[in-house]
Design a protein around this nucleic acid. Structure first.
Lengths: 418, 418
DNA sequence: GCAATTTTGTATATTTTTATACATAATTGA
DNA sequence: TCAATTATGTATAAAAATATACAAAATTGC
């Protein structure tokens, strides 16, 4: 049986991971909520909470909640408990960031690269960039909690690998997690960029809903889905591939995937840009299309409205299949606002039975940059603060003796209870 | 602090609900697995397990597993621990059954009724029928664990109510659970029949898969979906409504729902029967269609193949959206075998990208009657044996002092350990 | 036939948790 | 102003769980 003092405090700390997780995930932010959610006795909750407070992992917020008697003290994870590293791997850029657990950007950098460099070299550049971010910020507060990577390709989440040929040439079935864990020795998570956008929109803006369908309409078209509060990924990480659903029409356009009549070939940014070029306009991508719409160019507006109806057509099928209560539309073309949304709504309300649509909300995502990057941060935090992740994290903390920075006077403020 | 003996045994029993749940759900069926899954110490596991064995809730199977040393003893819930009551409410029949927890039928009965009788009268008839089943079998072993009801309409599972106008006229937003709980005082679960079919097919035949899409092709067409081992129901219980997805064609047929061109209007049993009648054949429903197919009537075969392609068309969209690893086709028309399946496969493999289909299995459900009824039984058992359900169940058992029947000599075989 | 291995049984000391109790703090409303 | 209410703090006895240890059972393989 280990003697008291440092080893004893460490045992108390690792024993408190369940309380830490409840606070860190927001599932319980007061002593009474901890009592209720943990199933432990009041004395044990106090003992474990005191261990977390003594270690500066948890703090009592200045905020209290009125209760009719003594006010309830709100608890929160110390924001200096640690940080996460995230990267959004695009087709031409690597966007890296060091973030606090909110997640909020502490520092960031953007590197140009080419897919042809291949995954090994790219992951090394990302690792180098991460190290530079850490050294530039003097290592940030506390410890590195984990790393998140976003990719514009289908990802088998469990295996942490890109699945199938995709625009990320050379990345198919490549181990991404292994090298990154080798570099930093922390948990690493990889996911598809639309899934990460979906996660972030949900957690930041729509977390009160049980489920949410997110449609990303930009250069390409994709969807992410939250079911019972969690991302739904499908058997191989390829769910939400609505851009390549085809439907018949006269003279169906050829898609980049090689099939005829795909939704993407009709309504994606690149397809609208193509049609605008055919009308003599200068447009290469979704951003150019939106610029023309914002200039009130009638042809651009007409094509965006038409794209809305095409997207609405496939949305109607999705609504029949998934029965979502909320649809959020984001991505570059979403900046077209009601020009896009009205077409989506028209087809969805026209095609679906009333049962599926009478309580369905279709809204635009709030404008914000780098959503996939923030989604990667959110993914890391969600995993690291989960019950299993918290146990692992506290074990890591006691074994490396790294605690959040804390002034001398605060050290060991609380003795062991009971 | 309660004194020992009866009260002490009861506390030991309710304290053992977590162990009971692990065994009952099959998550752990040996002492070492219980040790690993419960997180408790070996002595505590033994103490709680002994309490369950003493109460005849759990038994050591004759079966053992070789381990290289002393063989591992397999544990199982005593099948006399209790029973469940289930009802499949159809459009013209009520099919009731008393089942053991496997679930397996102990006794059953079928009653004719009319939807127009309304929910209150119908639920009373079901309650009467349930009481008759109980009295005919002398109450069955142990206690009544719970009740499950299957309905051919969208069901908001959390609220236990039919949602929206449906073929169950008069049932919209009616409280079904309340009256049934009032009658029997046990947990009651209500779900859509296709969801229950999906659950049963999954748990009985395909439980090793992470996800499964089930298509019921009969009089109507509907789908159920298992994601991460659980039924996915959508925001209002209306997911899987693929029968009313429309797609364009010349002269689209009118559906029963009032829209034009629905999948159901083209490929459901009633639609094929309509087309066969137009060709002079005598056919009213899916069963009649299959009878003609089994007689090798060319027109019936041609229409079934065509229905397969229509269903395949919509399945292709579903595959793009959900990325399932497995599709199971059931319902009356599934008895058409490859006449139906070949069309489904043709369109799915043709329409979807290789990533979505290269590891996709499309199979027929094994032929079995009353799948929705068994699904209702499975739903009850899954809930009652869950960690929370098991805690509730053991509390109910100690408060009513009802235990599985047990001979005198086996009583209190094990004293309290430690 | 027997040693090694793995599972299961039982006992006891130590640690942890819970139950119970008394007390203080900080509102809230009459 | 003060009693009532709710949250939080602290202490102690009792109960539960864990760690540790020794032993027996039932294979398995040489």
């Amino acid at each position: 049986m280990p003697t008291r003092d440092s080893a004893g405090d460490n045992a108390a700390l690792t024993n408190a991971s369940d309380i830490f997780s409840l606070i860190a995930t927001g599932a319980a932010v007061s002593r009474s909520a901890l009592l209720e959610r943990s199933g432990l006795s009041r004395v044990t909750v106090t003992q474990r909470l005191n261990a977390l407070i003594a270690a500066d992992l948890v703090e009592e917020a200045a905020k209290t909640l009125p209760s009719g008697g003594r006010p309830t003290r709100v608890l929160a994870v110390n924001r200096r408990v640690g940080h996460v590293l995230v990267a959004n791997i695009g087709e031409a850029h690597l966007h890296l960031a060091l973030m606090s657990p909110e997640p909020a950007v502490i520092a960031q950098s953007t590197l140009r690269y080419e897919v042809a460099e291949g995954p090994a070299a790219t992951l090394d550049r990302i690792a180098d960039g991460f190290r530079r971010l850490l050294s530039d910020t003097d290592g940030g507060d506390g410890m590195l909690l984990g790393i998140g990577l976003s990719l514009p390709a289908p990802v088998d989440y469990k295996r942490g690998r890109v699945v199938g040929p995709s625009i990320m040439r050379g990345w198919d079935d490549v181990d991404i997690i292994g090298p990154m864990v080798g570099h930093f020795g922390v948990p690493v998570y990889v996911d598809n960029d639309v899934n990460l956008m979906t996660l972030y929109e949900y957690r930041r803006h729509f977390h009160l809903a049980d489920d949410m369908l997110f449609i990303k309409v930009g250069t390409g078209i994709g969807a992410g889905f939250i079911a019972d509060g969690k991302i739904f990924r499908g058997a191989h990480g390829a769910s939400g591939d609505i851009g390549h659903i085809q439907f018949d029409s006269d003279d169906p356009p050829l898609c980049r995937c090689g099939k005829l009549g795909c939704v993407e070939a009709r309504a994606a940014g690149w397809a609208i840009a193509r049609d605008l070029r055919a009308h003599g306009f200068k447009a290469d991508n979704a951003r150019d299309v939106i610029a023309l719409v914002e200039e009130q160019v009638p042809e651009a507006i007409m094509m965006l409205r038409k794209a809305g109806r095409v997207i609405g057509e496939v949305m109607a099928d999705v609504v029949s299949i998934l029965n979502p209560g909320l649809i959020v539309v984001g991505g570059t073309l979403a900046r077209g606002g009601d020009f896009l949304l009205s077409g989506i709504r028209e087809l969805v309300y026209q095609r679906c039975l009333p049962l599926a649509t009478r309580e369905l909300n279709i809204v635009l995502a709030p404008p914000q940059a780098d959503i996939a990057l923030f989604g990667a941060g959110q993914l890391v935090v969600d995993n690291v603060f989960s019950p299993a992740g918290a146990a692992n994290l506290l074990n890591r903390m006691v074994s490396t003796a790294v605690r959040p920075d804390r002034p001398e006077r605060a050290r060991r403020r609380m003795g062991r209870a009971g």
